[in-house]
């Protein structure tokens, strides 16, 4: 087994891990029980999706998917913070 083959398998398994993590996080987002649990689940979903983009880019050898990861990361932060602010005060912009 050559190192390149090992790396190829690790990248594939890493994709499997990240998709499982995404599914687990979405289960928490669906199950709740309270709103803050759902927001935490969504936040983790964003992180997993971002990392999945990076790993997919590594598997395909392109750097283009990195931009998608950047956008997902930024949007995830803004979205989660807005939702958390809403839970805290009942309004997003004061």
């Amino acid at each position: 087994m050559t190192p390149a083959l090992i790396l190829a398998w690790v990248l594939l398994l890493s994709q499997v891990c990240l998709v499982s993590a995404l599914v687990l996080a979405s289960m928490r987002a669906i199950r709740g029980p309270r709103a803050q649990d759902r927001v935490t689940g969504l936040d983790t979903m964003y992180v997993c999706a971002m990392l999945l983009m990076v790993v997919t880019g590594m598997r395909q050898g392109t750097h283009f998917l990195f931009e998608a990861a950047l956008v997902i990361g930024t949007l995830g932060f803004v979205a989660t913070t807005a939702m958390a602010k809403f839970l805290l005060r009942g309004e997003v912009i004061e």
């Binding site: 390149a4 690790v10 990248l11 398994l13 890493s14 993590a21 687990l24 996080a25 689940g41 990392l51």
Partner: peptide, 28 residues
Amino acid sequence: LPPSVALIIAAFVALGSILTLIGALGLI
């Protein structure tokens, strides 16, 4: 990729994805 670099990358990616999975597992 040089073989040694490929192995180091594999180790880093494996560590990262396993920790992410454990984190999501903890969430559940």
